[in-house]
Amino acid sequence: MDLEIAMLLGQDGVTNGAIYALLALALVLVFAVTRVIFIPQGEFVAYGALTLAMIEAGRLPGTVWLLLAAGVLVVALDGLDALRRGGVGRLMKVVGWNIVYPLALVALMRFVPTDTWPLAAKVALTMAVVVPLGPMIYRVAYQPVAEASVLILLIVSVAVHVAMVGLALLFFGAEGSRTSAFSDASFTVGPMMVSGQSLWVIGTSLALIVALALFFGRTIYGKALRATAINRAGARLMGISPALAGRLTFMLAALIGALSGVLIAPIATIYYDTGFLIGLKGFVAAIIGGLASYPIAALGAILVGVLEAFSSFWASAYKEVIVFTLIIPVLVWRSLTSHHVEEDE
């Protein structure tokens, strides 16, 4: 192994690590605010990537129909309550966001040739389809059991994961897809060739992390989420709605997941079930951060990415074994250094 190979592997590891870092952040965020261990996080990666691929191919992605179906469910759950509390105006708002909006997207994709749009517009359209799924899933699956124990929430997560993978097979088929690259450029830095797409992945990840930091530090909604994460009951007494916090968190998680998918779709073939493994690696990183620390989770993600790249060079058959075994020493170390806190339910 010479320096050139090491640098190439390092570049590959950091690029993948940047994606894992985004997912790890989303997992930490969701757990901190809602106590949900969000196994379906990876599914949003696949949904984002494959929805974009279908838009590029000029086909109507099945995810808009899921959006419509989830919207109808939300209206069924919330409609009566909205009418009672806020009258027709509030009901119209609920119907508008959950039924009219998906229908508008269907009409747009059916009658406007979106496959000729520039890439940025297609990415925006993908986001418009996939991101609202996050809060809808929270409303339908998690909000009714929001006060339940972590274990029950985990079981709900498994159910949502299985349902989303099954639907993905129905929408996108069994074969994988790739999308066109954001940039075909490549730069030579010393002995190493850096591809434009890697820079896009790393740059976007960094930008998103900065944006999240600003969101949590500067905006009222961000502060509300932080307050909920620190003390749920206290935040509620201060007038922060746990339902709103949950929906907002899931929207961010869906945004991060779908964006990750759009970023890696040009460098890797994405299948309907790819998301799970990517999500799991983000999860390893989140565990390194103790499901609490954002910076340590991000560093852990880079570690996972680099470890993965080097172990695929030295012992490719055992790559996953090496990556997932990493979790054992981390858990030992964490349990030795931190106090065990009983969860008070």
């Binding site: 592997l9 590959d12 993948n16 890797a268 790819t274 790249a309 695929s312 490719s316 790559k319 996953e320």
Partner: peptide, 13 residues
């Protein structure tokens, strides 16, 4: 490599 791998740079090198 695994069917679901997103990168095979190591093996290919």
């Amino acid at each position: 490599y695994k069917r679901s791998d997103t990168s095979v740079t190591g093996q290919v090198l």
